[in-house]
């Protein structure tokens, strides 16, 4: 049994401690905001925030988050409403297929938590390990800068 905080709530799971956090979140705990993209920490689609740090959940064992706090896309909502960052992604229509969006938003949230007023270059560098195939990059950058501006 592994216990940790998921989006501010205490959760317990009897999934094997060696299971990738990604599959525990997606398959045991019903989290949509994590995606399998590569299983090798190369694409960022599975990014979650663990104790304030962006982490690739595909290569993080469940046991590594025991007793810690995990935040996923679902946990960003504020009072049931989209967070500023989520709203900025919606307002900028920052997607085509949107499969990478969850990881992008989590990576960007971790950046904004550390640096609330990033430059465009800060945003690009921070997101450089998150892959997008549709070519929504510039929209995503605009969305992050917009969220910073409106915060």
């Amino acid at each position: 049994m592994t216990a940790f905080k998921l989006n501010q709530k205490d959760v317990r799971t009897d999934a094997p401690a060696t299971s990738p956090l990604l599959f525990v979140l997606a398959n045991d705990l019903g989290v949509n905001g994590v995606k399998y993209g590569c299983g090798k920490s190369q694409c960022g689609a599975c990014t979650v925030i663990v104790d304030g740090e962006p982490v690739r959940s595909c290569q993080t064992a469940l046991s590594a988050v025991a007793g810690r706090s995990v935040v996923t896309l679902e946990g960003l909502r504020e009072g049931g409403k989209p967070s500023k960052l989520q709203q900025a992604f919606i307002d900028e229509q920052a997607a085509q297929c949107g499969f990478c969006a969850a990881g992008m938003i989590m990576q960007a949230q971790a950046l904004l938590d550390r640096n609330p007023q990033p430059t465009e270059s800060d945003v690009r560098t921070s997101l450089n390990g998150n892959l997008c195939r549709c070519g929504a990059h510039n929209r995503i950058v605009r969305a992050v800068l917009r969220a910073a501006r409106e915060a």
Binding site: V31, N32, Y36, I90, G98, A102
Partner: peptide, 17 residues
């Protein structure tokens, strides 16, 4: 389809359980 994708609502086939 964009809000669901930004909020983590079920929309992709990968999320069917």
């Amino acid at each position: 389809d964009i809000p669901a994708k930004m909020l983590g609502e079920e929309i992709f086939v990968h999320e069917l359980r």
